[in-house]
């Protein structure tokens, strides 16, 4: 167990293993993305209230829900950095932040485009929307903090603390629609009955899109982390060898 844990913390081991995973992850993502997008755009029935704007849900919901996974992931990686000083954990924490920022930004943007015709406004100071905006600024804060501190170790510690503190916002975002009267509707409960609200025709393609976007997130995180490994380990023999061997 401890051997495995120590091995996992080795950037070189992660670099080599993730290189083997990537083609499979790419294949799975492409498949799910093609099926999900085709289904969402062509086969999902028009909603009785919202018409074709329901198709926006198949982008908005996966992106928004995966943006909520970023802060907890960054907080766990930060805790590992603080306790075990594992180098890889901090590299992952560093690479999650910009991805989380983009996911949160896209969730806010698609939500605004959806809200404009349906609610009659692209923005409201509603608990769900406001807490999501706070998450956006927390990501900006983490990225700014990292770039403000020169020493890699000190930056790692500072960002770890901020990630752990900022993760409090995630349950607030999640439950905001239940705790307060909001313009944003609460989470839907799915039904297996085709003749009931939220039938499989609506949620199966959504599940496929969530899977596809999750894979996109994982691939993007792996790619960025591999770059970070090369940069931080550039003086080690294995990276020098890798660079002299590479084509470009």
């Amino acid at each position: 167990m401890w051997v495995w844990f120590a091995k996992l913390g080795s950037p070189r081991w992660f670099y080599e293993l993730s290189g083997k995973w990537l083609p499979w992850l790419y294949a799975a993502m492409t498949l799910l993305m093609l099926v999900g997008l085709t289904w969402a755009l062509l086969f999902v029935p028009e909603d009785y209230q919202q018409g074709h704007t329901i198709r926006i849900m198949y982008v908005h919901v996966p992106v928004a829900s995966i943006s909520l996974a970023c802060f907890p992931l960054m907080a766990v990686a930060g805790a590992i950095t603080l306790v075990w000083k594992m180098k890889l954990a901090d590299m992952v924490a560093k690479c999650v932040a910009p991805i989380g920022l983009w996911f949160t930004g896209l969730a806010l943007a698609t939500g605004a485009i959806w809200g404009q015709p349906i609610w009659g406004t692209w923005w409201a100071w509603d608990a769900r929307l406001t807490s999501m905006l706070i998450q956006f600024f927390l990501f900006v804060g983490v990225i700014a903090l990292r770039s403000a501190i020169e020493s890699t170790d000190a930056a790692a510690k500072a960002c770890a603390v901020l990630a752990i503190v900022g993760a409090i916002n995630v349950p607030i975002i999640k439950y905001s629609v239940e705790w307060w009267n909001t313009l944003h509707q609460p989470a839907s409960s799915i039904s297996f009955d085709s003749a009931a609200p939220n039938p499989p025709e609506v949620w199966v393609p959504l599940l496929i899109m969530i899977g596809a976007v999750y894979l996109l997130f994982i691939i993007s995180l792996i790619l960025r982390t591999r770059n970070e490994i090369l940069i931080r380990e550039r003086r080690s023999q294995w990276v020098t060898d890798l660079i002299t061997r590479s084509q470009s």
Binding site: H52, R55, V59, I99, W102, L106, A109, L216, I219, L223
Partner: peptide, 23 residues
């Protein structure tokens, strides 16, 4: 898309750009 061509297609365009950017 009914009357929502602008909204639906802008969202999907943003998504495609987003996927491309991330990869």
């Amino acid at each position: 898309m009914g009357t929502y061509s602008f909204h639906v297609w802008v969202v999907y365009l943003l998504f495609v750009l987003f996927v491309g950017y991330n990869l």
